[in-house]
Design a binder for these strands. Sequence first.
DNA 1: ATGGAGACCTTTTTT
DNA 2: AGGTCTCCAT
Length: 787
Amino acid sequence: MNKADEILSQLNPAQQEAVKQIEGPVMVIAGAGSGKTRVLTYRIAYMLENGIPPWQILALTFTNKAAGEMKERIFKLLGDSQAQSVAMGTFHSVFYRILRTEGEKLGYSHNLIVYDTDDSKTAIKNIVKEMNLDPKTYTPSHILNRISAAKSSLLSAEEYAQNPDIAAVDAQSGKPHIAEIFMRYNARLKKSDAMDFDDLLYYMNILLRDFPEMLYKYQNRYRYILVDEYQDTNFAQYMIVKKLAAAHQNICVVGDDAQSIYAFRGANIQNILNFKRDYPKAQIVKLEQNYRSTQNIVNAANALIKYNKDQLPKEVWTSNNEGNKINIVQSNTDAEEANFIASNIKEIQLNEHIDNSHFAILYRTNAQSRALEESLIKHHIPYKIYAGLSFYKRKEIKDLLAYFRLAINNFDEEALRRIINYPARGIGETTMEKVIVAANEQNVRVWHVIEDPETYLDKEVYAPTKKKLKEFATLIKSYTAMLQRSNAYDLGLHIAKSSGIISELKQDISEKERLENIEEVLDALKQFVEKAPETSFNEDTGEVIENYFPTLDRYVESIALLTDTEDDDKQNFNKVKLMTIHAAKGLEFDYVYITGMEENLFPSALSIGSRQELEEERRLFYVAVTRAKVQLTLTHATMRFKFGSLQFSEPSRFLSEIPITYVNISAKASSGRGAMSIGGQRNPLRSRYAEQQEPAPAKPAGRFVPKQYARQTTQKPELSIDMAAIGKLAKPTDIVPKLKVYHVKFGYGEVINVEGTANDLKALIHFDSVGDKTLLLNFAKLIIPKK
DNA sequence: ATGGAGACCTTTTTT
DNA sequence: AGGTCTCCAT
């Protein structure tokens, strides 16, 4: 049996169908636990086994984790390094890389940096202040939401400003100046040579829309496209995928409409519901067999999701055991709820010898983790909280990274403002305000004012202060000068020391943890340097780059879109896992606790205003329920601390949507009352909820209608050089010593030597104009000239 | 310019 | 409850 057949033999018939159909559009509707990741990875492996070059495959995911997992599994499957050449990553990271390469066309440099949400909010906050608007009305998060929604719908700031419907919504909410903030915010990002998360998708669209040669280039590079979690794509992502796939139509999307939980940030469930309309020839495969959970869990999940109107019909089933009933446990307070869970975990472990790592506690909001944490500590149960405050969002890390960023890109205004007075060097608010006013009035960058204060600042700023500004600029410039000479670790260490960050933290014993975090970054830098490959290659020209040097800017690029430290399985393998339900998507655990099953918490009070929002909450519940393999426990409390005060809460309506045959309801014993018996045929929670149900208030419509994208791009763009006139494109195997060749960038040359095998052929070529170059033949589009 | 005390506001979910 | 912001004293 050959390897391709071997791959297929490990799949069920529906999965095989999804894997085998390499050409043409395919949509895989993958029910929870039906082996979605398996299908994706096996499909890529199958493609590779069928001779498709790895670099023609583009696999897009939503999280770094999903991308990493896929890579690892393909590696295990094929046992060679082919997986390394597959372009696999999050939408944001893949397009960031492309935009760094091509960004000059849009007026950005190769140093293009990414602003995270914090940077964006700070920038907006400052703009609101500069415009003398009321910061209580114009909150950064609300404004960023509006801007983000616009960018995700491919609406420019100008279009936003001119759209009367949007103006009406903003005027009605008392915030008529959002459009102007939007414009200033964009200008500011541009001046800083920076993009925010949404820009990465927005400008990728612009690149493909306005530059036909770019569309042509990337359509032909990525001939096979796979998209994971397609139900979570927003309009900007949808359009990129559509454009890239337009030429070859080899697009495979995988998703589950029932697990769409990101509409709040612009995901459009219609993208998956309308796939058949976009690609009429599409083959649709449904994966309906659940391999993960017990029958009780699968049946309960099926039953509750039926309350939703918007969905593709499917019936998930399992041949697993019926399993235990789902426990519903009521407690008096959130603290009791937490104690119950901790002691329940202990009890199960005592009886069945189950490792901590097989337990997960899920919640709707991060704020709920505190009470749980306390109980776990009290019960001596090791745990790990996922997300929360991610490593890269910690203050000290952001401070150090701001130094790195500013060294790489002197124009990064957010980084500059963050660190110009940290550690304190006597440059306070007042001075910075004057600097900013001067920069705005004289229409130069803030950096220029700092660099040359005598020219741009008047006598109002005292000479000693000017000197301090200049000294700061000099310090940063000394780092910049070292960028290409020192490796990432040496320079990083130098910056951490000479900037004063380390001594500042050393002064205060209570900052020990922050100091350790700084050391962790330095460790990471060391590893980055040590693990750096010796050679790399340029994807465009195929040129092999010897002595690849691990510089600090390469490090910063590599971590720009990481939200958390890589899952350090070594340390966390024996810990109970705590996370939000959103963070749990795609994961599975034997024992799952879903906490805070209460009205206004789950479903969230903010999401019960419309049917669409409520249905999203229900899908979220569906996701949570289907994480459990063996035992699911739902807990709710009658009283809970909210904003520091104790509040009463009613059981979640979702509890009543699970048919009574699958559940086992009990009150928590510690309150003194015995377990509550299940009375009658009806779920008692149902009637309880029905009594206090109120009509939902109407919500103003604020969502954008995606505009149709005017310029269609199927026409073949003209290349700057007419290749056919020069000769014919050579296959890698055509290249032999002494052959005369033509390269788009390096011109005419002669092959001196060829080495390597199959997909890794390299040639040393002497070019008339640029001398000797080693090229990777799979990437170097060499032409054999006409005689 | 800095730091501390008290008022105040928050809470969805994340690349 | 906890973090952020404002104001006031140094």
